[in-house]
């Protein structure tokens, strides 16, 4: 899932300065799972904003709404009746959701309430870790299912660097060395021969270096 973290409250309040009626729009997708942008988060943030503004004698009207996903036109369309009635929309979706909203509703300012942080998963409830950097060229088959791009701080492709000490990365003693994890796993799988294969220089054009990316399924195009 895409993991997002709520922006500092002060920053959000600054964005809403001068607006009297806004919609706080949650997203029922990834950010609901990571507890930052779903229906509950919308209620909490709206309540906080109302209180902060009320306290300063500058009340604000908030419409609380959550759609299934903000990165799909059909769900974004569901708020078309509300958007013209508000001064601004505060989106609690990831960066993709905010942009889909902004593209659909061109006359209303769209603000992000989250900092989109990474693609990852939940180790346990409320504890999220990065696992993928969407490089566009998956190498997991060669590295025992552990990603050298996302898990190695330097994104090295052929073994650890000299900063690997007792299984930990030099950037932080709490961070596992990605390559140590890969080696241990390959050994367990009896696939050490894969470690011997040299991975060629990565073609970063499939990653962000190639500019904004697209994925098109021809059979769905009409």
């Amino acid at each position: 899932m895409v993991v997002g973290e709520r922006k500092p409250f002060e920053e959000i309040m600054k964005m809403l300065e001068g607006h009297k009626k806004v919609m706080v729009l949650g997203c029922g997708g990834c950010v609901t799972v990571c507890l930052t942008g779903g229906q509950d988060a919308v209620r909490v943030l709206s309540s906080q904003i109302r209180m902060a503004r009320d306290k300063d004698g500058n009340p604000i009207e908030i419409i609380e709404k959550t759609v299934e996903r903000q990165c799909d036109p059909e769900y974004v369309d569901q708020v078309q009746e509300i958007v013209p009635d508000v001064d601004a929309v505060l989106s609690m979706a990831c960066g993709a959701g905010v942009q889909f909203m902004a593209e659909r509703y061109t006359k209303t300012p769209l603000y992000p309430a989250l900092n989109t942080t990474f693609v990852g998963g939940s180790v346990k409830e409320g504890y999220y870790v990065e696992r993928c950097q969407t490089c566009g060229e998956c190498k997991l088959a060669y590295t025992g299912g552990i990603c050298p791009i996302a898990r190695c701080s330097k994104s090295l492709l052929n073994g650890p660097c000299g900063g690997s000490t007792k299984g930990k990365c030099e950037i932080d003693p709490n961070v596992d060395c990605g390559w140590q994890l890969i080696l241990d796993r390959l050994r367990d799988l009896d696939q050490m021969d894969r470690y011997e294969q040299i991975l060629e220089i990565a073609d970063w054009r499939t990653s962000r270096d190639g500019g904004p990316r697209k994925m098109i399924r021809e059979d769905f195009q009409r």
Partner: peptide
């Protein structure tokens, strides 16, 4: 109890 319960009370 969730944070919303408490915040609503203050609100």
């Amino acid at each position: 109890v969730t944070p919303v319960f408490i915040l609503r009370a203050f609100e």
